[in-house]
Structure formats: C-alpha cells, structure tokens
Design a protein around this nucleic acid. Sequence first.
DNA 1: GCAAAAGTTTGATCAGGATCAAACCTCGAG
DNA 2: CTCGAGGTTTGATCCTGATCAAACTTTTGC
Lengths: 253, 253
Amino acid sequence: MPKARASIDADGPAIRAVDLWAPSSEKTPQLLSAEERARLAVIASIVRFNKGEKIYGEGQRAHAVFNIVTGVVKAYKTAPDSSEHITAFLFPDDLVGLSEEGRYTNSLTAITPVTAYLLPVSALRSRLSNDAGLEFHVICKLCHELRQTQRHAFILSRRQALSKVAMFLQLLEQLQAVRGERITEIYLPMSRSDIGEYVGMSLEAVSRAFRGLTTRGIIKSRDRRHLKITDRSTFDKIADNTNASSAAGSVTQ
Amino acid sequence: MPKARASIDADGPAIRAVDLWAPSSEKTPQLLSAEERARLAVIASIVRFNKGEKIYGEGQRAHAVFNIVTGVVKAYKTAPDSSEHITAFLFPDDLVGLSEEGRYTNSLTAITPVTAYLLPVSALRSRLSNDAGLEFHVICKLCHELRQTQRHAFILSRRQALSKVAMFLQLLEQLQAVRGERITEIYLPMSRSDIGEYVGMSLEAVSRAFRGLTTRGIIKSRDRRHLKITDRSTFDKIADNTNASSAAGSVTQ
DNA sequence: GCAAAAGTTTGATCAGGATCAAACCTCGAG
DNA sequence: CTCGAGGTTTGATCCTGATCAAACTTTTGC
C-alpha cells in the first residue's frame, strides 16, 4: 500500500474507475518485461523456503518484496480468536509483500517448496521513482489484485458449499491456464483446511463438497491434489448457482 | 481497471507489494487536491439521481466516471440466479465507474438522492496521461479500494451473524468518522436487505442481529437509520470474535 | 391524507453446515 | 521398513441462519 497517511486510510475516497490508461492493445502478461526484469535482477537475490515454512508474519517490519519463481504461497491473517483467514494464494510470477506503514499486512507461508527473488524495499522504491513503465505495470497489477479480491469476496458470499468449492476450482483452473488454453487437470497444492479458510467453510465441509461433486460425476480426482472436471455444464451451473438442482438435487448426499 | 488485455486478466501475476511510494508524511485525504479538482472541473458536468435510480448497469458501455458529491450509492453484481451481491457502498468523494474492456463491471444504484460530477472517460484519460500527480493519487485510491475489498472479504468470511453485522457497523463508523474523530451516531442509509447482501446473510437475519445487539445493550437505535454503540468493549469483542460469549452468551436470543 | 408499496419485524419450521469424534490414509523421518 | 504426525474422510449430532409466512411500519405517490 502506498504509504500510510492515516487520513487516506480513514477517509480517503475509494476509486472505482480505472479503465483510463487503456493504451494500445499490446499484451503485458508479466509484471515485468524482460528488460525491466533484468534491471531489477541487479538488486534481487534468490531465496528458498521449505514447504510449510513461514516467510514473514503480519505486523513484521517490511524490508523486502518477493517475486515468486516456483512454488505456491498462502497469504493470511490470523484473527484474534486465532482462526486463520486466507487472503490469497500466490503463484509463480506473483509479487508479494504488501505492507502498510512499513509493516506487512498479512502473514506468508510456503505451502510447497518455494524459490523467489527477494527485492529489498529501499532499492525497489528508488527504481520505481524513475521508471514510469514500472509504475504503469504496478497499476495494472493493482487492478488485477483488486479483481481477484472481488472475486474472492464473491465466493465467500455464496451460501451453498458446492457452489463455493466449484467457484474456487474455476479460479484455480483459470490461474493455471496457460495463455487461455484450458488445462485438463486442476492441481490443488493446498490442504483441505486451507481451501476451507479461503472459501469460508470448515475443512470437513470442503471434503464433503468434493465427495458431493464426485458422486454426481461432475469431477473426478486422480489423487488428493489432482482432479478434472468431467461434467462441465452442471459444474458451471453449480458454480454460478444456476439451478442445477433439477438434475443433481436428486442425489441425496 | 486499466484496460483489458486478456492476457493480464488471465494470467497476470498479482501484486501485493505497494508500500513503495511512501514519500513524506503529508496528508492526502481527498482524491484530488483543490487545484487538480479545478483542472478537472473543466471537463465535468453535474448530474443528479433520485433515490433508487439506477446509474448504470453491469456490462453497459463505460462512457463516464462519477465523482460523488452528495448521497450514497451501492455497487453490485447480479448473479445468474438473480440474487444481488453488493460489492461496495460509495460515499461522497468516492470515484465510481470501474470498467474493463470499456464496459462497467458492476451495476450502480443511488440509495439516497445523489449528486455527482460526471467525467467523460475520454477527456479524463487524456488528462491523466500528462498529469503524474493525478496518476499517483490513482494508485493511492486503488490501494484504498483494495484494502476495503479485503476488509469486505474478511466480513464475509465470518460465520456468526452478530460478528458480521458488528464488523459492518465498525466499517460504517470509520467511513463516517471525520478526520479520525469518532462519531456519536452511525447513519445507515441502506436497507436491511442491502446490508444482508453486503455481509452475506438474509435480511431477516440482519434484523435479528440488530435486535440481538440491542437487547444485549450493545447498541441503541434512535430510528431505523440511526444508532449508537452503547457498550464499546463487548461490541469490539463481538466484532473481532474475541469470545464475548461469557457475558453475552447467556441471553438466549 | 389516504392508499399502495416498500421495507421491517417477528414467528415457526427446516436444512445445511459447524462441531465433535473417531477411523483412515499418506508421506516423511528415522 | 516402520512409525508417527499431519492430513483426510466419514459419521452423528446440534445449532444457526435460511426460508416461508404473516403482521406491522414507514414511505411515497396521488
């Protein structure tokens, strides 16, 4: 977050209008172009984390930003009642290290082995101030992040367990799709309880939802971390709550 | 959203690192400084909407951005099953008009009489390209919006009705606080069902939650749209789920 | 000011998911 | 290979909030 003026935090107006930069129709799939990447490489160092290793904790002094190279990371907040709320799952090429007032706003843990570039905040900041292109990319990424978060909120607002899980799978599928090509198999690097904490339900309910989708022939899982969607149309109907109950509702559990 | 490159939408990495611009410690409570505001006034025109009037619909061609002057607006998405999911409530000084691929991403309806500045997208875009200060403010506002959305997601992830409503009231209180001064009375311009669609529960449940908070002496409502918090400590405990049940749990309903 | 419409409260019932509990896999460490 | 810990499935029960329904209140338009 750009700095921490209390006034912005407290009463800064929201912005909801950002389709203004739309320049040409060039593609910018990466946060950084090869060239920009190279320029940043100077200040970056590679770091590595084991599965389950905590990268940083909420409230800790934010000294660095990470650019994930391989692996998957979860960002989460720990509520006072010690329950976790997962804010996002981060994948390769994602930038992580959101901070406010110089402190991280959430905790970060690797859920698979992770390698990442570590970019010291100070060095990165000076790069940004004289690199308009980079700044533009940042705006793009902020917008992307905003979309993702709105989508997350949308998932959380659903009341049906099947609906939540289906939407979550849609999300993963899109994240894993390469260049718009639909993938055949969805990979679930995170645990059932991670999923539950992301979509807002208990881990048992997540498990049951998977079984529910399986017994209806909508998904088929190879193992606990790999599944494919076998009945697209009803899957989509469940995901966006278009009454699929006529067909699937008959199956009791 | 800045433009609509399919590739960004599909696989653009998320950014989570934006505390990089933190300059001095000046305050920027408004999106626009008086001067910037004046520069924009040239291209703006004033528009007025009645209570309940729809400002625009999701998917409509996005020709303009609105800067709310007075009144309150709700932004929402209509799910295929025709249920509404409220994305945000917008207040004076908020900018609205988020679009993607030149089309609005959600619908907008005035929930009180509203006056606003209408800024044509085309004119605004050209302003922005040669106004770095404005661009910086946009980044700030995007961050603010992101924070708000994350907070919304956090509310939606709570399972207790009282907790959701209490968090929602906290949110309103902060939005209405002027310069960090805590207000005495919270104003609820939106209907119970609007609240329900925002926090993810039925309107009846919202009503019961208000009653629940009232019978426990935690809030006191002057009328349906004005209330004050009478027991701060238990209110806060309920809002962040710190077990307040010892004290309040005894009250059955 | 009245009637209709919209919004709110309250009640009763019901269902879906939370929770508690136990058995079962899976993977990694020794 | 075996053991153990962490993760997952499954089961049984309970409870909260959804849903249906009806009375009541407030607002709005004539």
